[in-house]
């Protein structure tokens, strides 16, 4: 690939790409101690306009959404950004990582379970049901037992003092097909006193399964994904700085959910290259794109020193 990259060039072209068919996309999740959240959108033609307003306006209203844990069923509440309670707009803008004025120019709708007695519990299977535009979509997902990291440490690079990667140990259970997601954020505050990172970020290859290390104690390391968006010299990108405090969110997923998320991750890595098989991310919602995902995160803190 490197060799080909050295001799190749690229240019935009417009060719006919047949096969576009409008589909509903359902993005639903529930985590341990969390409320269920569902976003509904539609897929877009590759030549469709991609302005910021149009992308943000993709999340649709008008659906009726239920979630059940087998004994209790709740209907989720539709919340749109044009009808947020006072003060909530800033929080939502921060969550989405967009300026407040952009949020005010569009309408983003989500379906949220607000029942304080209905939060994700380990060991329960949650069923999703969505009625939208005359069709019904259903899926189920289970919150598995959490598998925490054994330990973590920060290792300084020998040729880059005060900078290094985060290293982690995992004891994988003896059962096969355990699957994980690694996310991280820094708890440091910036010069204004606000947290540096307002949400968790995924690393470059955040989804892993135990195909290669089933039942073993395994050490791995990750780069600092936030650093790539920062205005710092390239030489420091990818590293945590001495003094950074990290909060690691390490989640355990069902294997079919992992396959869906891993396919998305492979797509991102391959960047449409012909050296990979065209692979669609196949979710667990018949008739719709996307997935309904239940997962069990564990949290740990690492001080880089």
């Amino acid at each position: 690939m490197l060799l080909l990259a050295a001799v190749s060039c690229s240019k935009p072209v417009k060719v006919a790409i047949p096969g576009y068919e409008e589909k509903v996309v359902i993005e639903g999740l529930i985590e341990t101690d969390g409320f269920p959240l569902v976003l509904i959108s539609k897929n877009k033609n590759v030549y469709a306009p991609v302005s910021q307003a149009e992308i943000l306006g993709s999340y649709l209203s008008g659906a009726t959404v239920w979630v059940s844990d087998g004994t209790t069923t709740i209907q989720l509440t539709e919340i749109c950004t044009d009808n947020l309670p006072a003060g909530m707009d800033t929080t939502v803008a921060n969550f989405l990582g967009i300026p407040l004025e952009v949020l005010n120019q569009t309408t983003i709708c989500a379906y949220v379970g607000l029942d304080p007695n209905f939060k994700g519990e380990v060991g329960k299977t949650y069923t999703l049901k969505v009625d939208f535009e005359g069709k019904t979509y259903q899926a189920a997902s289970k919150i598995l037992d959490p598998i925490p990291l054994l330990s973590s440490y920060w290792k300084e690079e020998t040729d880059l003092p005060d900078y290094g990667f985060s290293h982690h140990f995992l004891q994988d259970p003896p059962q096969k097909n355990n699957a994980y997601l690694f996310e991280v954020k820094r708890l440091n505050v910036d010069s204004t006193g606000q947290p540096k990172d307002k949400r968790y970020y995924k690393t470059f290859t955040p989804y892993i399964d135990d195909e290669f290390f089933n039942g073993k104690t395994f050490e791995f390391f990750y780069e600092n994904p936030m650093s790539y968006d920062e205005e710092i010299p390239d030489a420091y990108k990818g590293y945590y700085k001495r003094g950074d405090t990290l909060e690691i969110k390490f989640s355990n997923y069902e294997y079919n959910v992992f396959r869906f998320l891993y396919a998305i991750s492979l797509q991102k890595m391959s960047g449409g290259s012909p050296f990979t098989l065209p692979t669609n991310a196949v979710g667990n919602i018949p008739g719709a794109l996307g997935a309904w995902i239940a997962f069990s995160p564990t949290y740990s803190t690492l001080v880089c020193q």
Partner: peptide, 20 residues
Amino acid sequence: LTMPSSWYIYNQEVVMEYGG
């Protein structure tokens, strides 16, 4: 060749949906 005929957003990432 097989190209994505559509795309969608999932978890703030672009996901390709390949056509025929």
